[in-house]
Computed example of a mutant assay.
Amino acid sequence: MRRRSALVGSLAALAAGTPARAQTPVDLQLVLAVDVSRSIDEVEAELQRRGYIEALTNDRVIDAILSGEHKRIAVCYTEWAGTHYQVVVLDWTVIDTPGAARRFAEKLAEAPRASQSWTAVGAALAHAGQRFENSPFVAKRRVIDVSGDGRTNDGPPAEIVRDKLVSQGIVVNGLPVMMNRTNFGRPPDLTLDKYYEESVIGGPGSFMIVADNFDHFGRAVRTKLVREISAADGPIRSSPA
């Protein structure tokens, strides 16, 4: 009951919205919402974290940041599992130089990592949406980048939360990781990409990059960040470049 009450409160706050309090302009406010549920083993979790670390310091990503009007973005990194586990790992940080990107990546590499039960995509989106209420920045674009290897089995349906976010002008992009092995006795989810397309991503220009497995995750993140930061057009669904 406590979990459900807390989640209802989160959804109510999300629906109400809160005006931005600070006004430092950036080209993009980006929440990275990363799945740490127990379907992801230690090796895969390391590949996932390493993928973000390397992508954020990649020359193509830095070039995309520096090509914007303000030449800076603000990033918040969160991790999620069930409704009981939604954590801000690194709060809002400006990335405006290669050095700033490197410092963010170093902090991410040092941050502890947990593994928790259940997969609550809807709760992850609600938590990510609330991060914008506490952001000391303002941007024309607010984006949630959610990655994971499973569909919701706990908490509210992702599409309900997604629709509330989109109504507030927030874009949700996805990075589903397709798995070809059995997890906890469950067969592989061969239609996870379709689930992300129909129930997770949304908003003008929303898209998803599909990773065939965690070995391809780093390249997928890099491709996704370049497109998100530069606001480049492209297909709704694509593979890592």
Rank of each mutant, 00 (worst) to 15 (best):
N213I: 05
L225S: 03
G202D: 06
A101D: 04
V94I: 14
R222K: 12
V210K: 14
R141T: 11
T119C: 04
R60T: 13
V143Y: 00
P187F: 12
R162S: 04
G202A: 09
D215S: 05
I95G: 04
L175G: 02
S147G: 08
E46G: 03
I209Y: 07
E198V: 07
T18P: 00
G203P: 10
T78D: 12
A231K: 05
N134C: 01
I40P: 00
R181M: 14
A55L: 01
D35N: 05
L190E: 10
R49D: 13
R103H: 13
R49E: 10
V36T: 13
G129P: 07
S230N: 11
A109E: 10
G202Y: 11
N173V: 15
L32I: 13
G82P: 09
S135A: 15
I95L: 15
Q116L: 07
F104D: 02
N153E: 02
N180M: 13
K194F: 04
K164L: 07
A33I: 00
V31K: 07
Q130R: 15
G174K: 08
E44M: 02
P98T: 13
T83W: 03
N58C: 10
A20P: 11
R142H: 08
S239Y: 15
E69A: 15
T83I: 10
P98V: 11
V43Y: 11
A22Y: 14
A81P: 10
V200P: 06
G51M: 04
D35P: 14
E42H: 08
W80I: 11
G68F: 11
N183M: 09
Q86W: 04
A105T: 08
D27P: 08
A101C: 03
S206E: 06
P98L: 07
S5T: 11
E46Y: 06
R237K: 10
V121G: 05
R60Y: 06
V138N: 01
V166D: 08
D212G: 09
S147F: 07
P136R: 12
G185Y: 08
P235Y: 04
S39K: 00
D193A: 12
A139Q: 03
Q130K: 09
E228F: 14
P157K: 13
R219Q: 12
D163E: 10
R222W: 01
M178Q: 13
T223Q: 10
T78V: 13
M179L: 13
L7A: 09
D35S: 08
M179G: 14
R181G: 04
N183P: 01
A158E: 04
I95M: 12
V88Y: 02
I53V: 15
Q48K: 12
E69F: 05
I73Q: 04
Q130D: 06
V89M: 09
I144T: 00
Y77E: 06
